[in-house]
Design a protein around this nucleic acid. Structure first.
Lengths: 244, 244
DNA sequence: TTCGTCAGTGACGAATCGTCAACTTACCAG
DNA sequence: CTGGTAAGTTGACGATTCGTCACTGACGAA
C-alpha cells in the first residue's frame, strides 16, 4: 500500500465521521437546523476542512441522502429474501420502505429535496453520480422481482406497461402514501385517523390487484403475510408497524 | 360600512400584493431564492410592514401554498363538472392536479414542505387554519364523487375501505407519481423516458381497476376520455399534457 | 539544516432573518 | 385651529450563516 491509499482511507473515514455528525444534528434539530458551523463545531476539524469534503451545505445534504439510501439498499435486500410468492416479496419491499421512513422521517424526506433544481446545482458531480448509482441499486432488485413474476406466470403485464413502469408505479405509490402521512402529527382534516401502514398496504394491494399480480388479494390473506414479514424479516424493527 | 371594514380591505389587498410579488420572485429564482428583503425591495412598503403581515418567511411560504391551493380548488371544480361516468370525472380531477403541477412545479412542491414540523411551528395559527380549511375544500368534491359512484352502483368498496380512504389513496398516488417525475430534467437512471402524464394515468387506472370502479379499463377506452377532458374542460392549458 | 508543498485554519465579507426604538400619519377633543 | 394619542411604518441593527482565502505549520526531500 502506498501512502496515497492510506491517506484516501483516512479521508473516507473522516467523511463518514462528518456525515455521522451531521446526522446527529439533523436528528436533534431537523434539516433546517443543520448548519455547516455546527458540524465544524462538533468535530475536531475546522470549517475549511469541512468545506474540503463538501462543496456546500447542499452537497452535504445529498451525501446524507446517499448514506440513507445505502441503508435502504440493505433493507431491500433483506426484504427480497422473504420466503413466499413474488407478490409477497414485493410487499416485503414496501414494508422495508415504510420501516425506513418511520425509523427516520427526516432522512426519508430528503429524497424529495434532493430532486430540487437548486440542490442539484450546488452538489458536486461525484456526489450526484453516486446518487444515481444508488437509485439503480434500489431499483435493480425490484426489476428482477418483476421479471421473476412474469417468468413464473404470476404477472402478465398489459402491453402498455413495461417492467420499469411497473417498478416506478410501485415506488411512486409507496412514496406518495408515506410522504403524506409521515408528518401527520398535525391534525389535518383529511388525514386524521389515517395510519401510514394501513393506507400503504391498502394502496399497494389495490395497485397489484389492478395489474392482476397473482395471487389476487381476494384469493390470499395478505394480512397474514404482513405479520410474517414483520416477524421473520424485521423482528427488531417491526414494532413500529401495526399490522391490522 | 365602517372605517374598520375599509381598512381591513386595504390590508387584504396589500397582502395579495405581497403574495403576488413573492410568487414573481419564486418564479424567477425558486423557493430558496425567495427572501424577505427581496420582497420588501420590490414593494412600496418596508420590511417591517412585510413582517406585519407575515410572522416569518415560513408564514409567507404557507400563504403562497394556500394561494396555490385556491387556484387548485377552482381547477377541481371545473374538473368535477365533466360530463361522463363518475370514474371519468375522477380522472378529470387527476388531470386537473397534473395540470396544476405542470403549470407551476415550484408551487406544487410547496405542499410537501408545508407539512414540515419546522415550517408549521413558524406559521401563524390563522394561516394554518386557512390551510386546513382549504384541504377540506379540496377533498370535499372528491368525497362527493365517491358517494355518487357508490349510489350509482359503479363502485362497491371493500369493507375495509371507507370513503375517506378511497379519496386519500387517489390523492397519494397522484401526488407520488407527479412529485417524482415533475423535476426530472435530470437524467435519473430509473426515471428517464418516463412521462408524468402517461405514468399518472397508468397509476390511477391500476388503482381504480384494483377497487373495481366501473367501467373497468378493460371495458372502456380511457385514452379517449383523457382527450375529451383536455379538449372540453381545459382547452387552453391541455397542450401541456400529451394524451397517448 | 533549509526549503517547498499542501492540508488545515479561522477571521472575514456578504447575505439574510427578525426586532425595535424612533418616526409619521390619522384622527379626535377642546 | 391646536395639541395629543393611538396606530401604523420605517430602516438600522444584532445575530446567524454561508463560503472564501490569505496565512500557518508539519513533514519530507535535498
Amino acid at each position: 500500500m502506498g501512502p496515497r491509499t492510506v491517506k484516501s482511507e483516512q479521508l473516507q473515514a473522516r467523511e463518514r465521521e462528518l456525515i455521522e455528525t451531521a446526522l446527529g444534528i439533523m436528528e436533534q434539530e431537523g434539516t433546517s437546523g443543520l448548519t455547516m458551523d455546527k458540524v465544524a463545531a462538533r468535530v475536531p476539524y475546522s470549517k475549511g476542512t469541512v468545506y474540503n469534503h463538501f462543496r456546500s451545505r447542499e452537497d452535504l445534504l445529498t451525501s446524507i441522502c446517499n448514506a440513507s439510501m445505502e441503508t435502504l439498499v440493505e433493507l431491500f435486500t433483506r426484504a427480497i429474501g422473504f420466503q413466499g410468492s413474488t407478490r409477497e416479496r414485493l410487499l416485503a419491499v414496501h414494508y422495508a420502505y415504510l420501516l425506513h421512513a418511520l425509523l427516520d422521517p427526516t432522512q426519508f424526506m430528503l429524497v424529495i429535496s434532493a430532486k430540487t433544481a437548486n440542490l442539484i446545482e450546488r452538489t458536486s458531480e461525484r456526489r450526484l453520480a453516486a446518487h444515481h448509482e444508488l437509485e439503480g441499486r434500489l431499483m435493480g432488485p425490484m426489476l428482477e422481482l418483476v421479471d421473476e413474476a412474469i417468468a413464473a406466470g404470476e404477472l402478465t403485464p398489459a402491453p402498455h406497461l413495461d417492467r420499469r413502469q411497473i417498478v416506478f408505479t410501485n415506488w411512486a405509490g409507496s412514496f406518495g402514501v408515506i410522504s403524506l402521512l409521515i408528518n401527520s402529527q398535525d391534525q389535518c382534516s383529511a388525514r386524521e385517523d389515517l395510519d401510514a401502514g394501513t393506507e400503504l398496504f391498502n394502496h399497494v394491494n389495490l395497485l397489484l390487484d389492478g395489474m392482476q399480480w397473482r395471487p389476487m388479494s381476494s384469493d390470499w390473506h395478505y394480512d397474514q403475510t404482513l405479520k410474517r414479514i414483520g416477524a421473520e424479516i424485521f423482528p427488531g424493527e417491526s414494532t413500529l408497524i401495526d399490522t391490522p
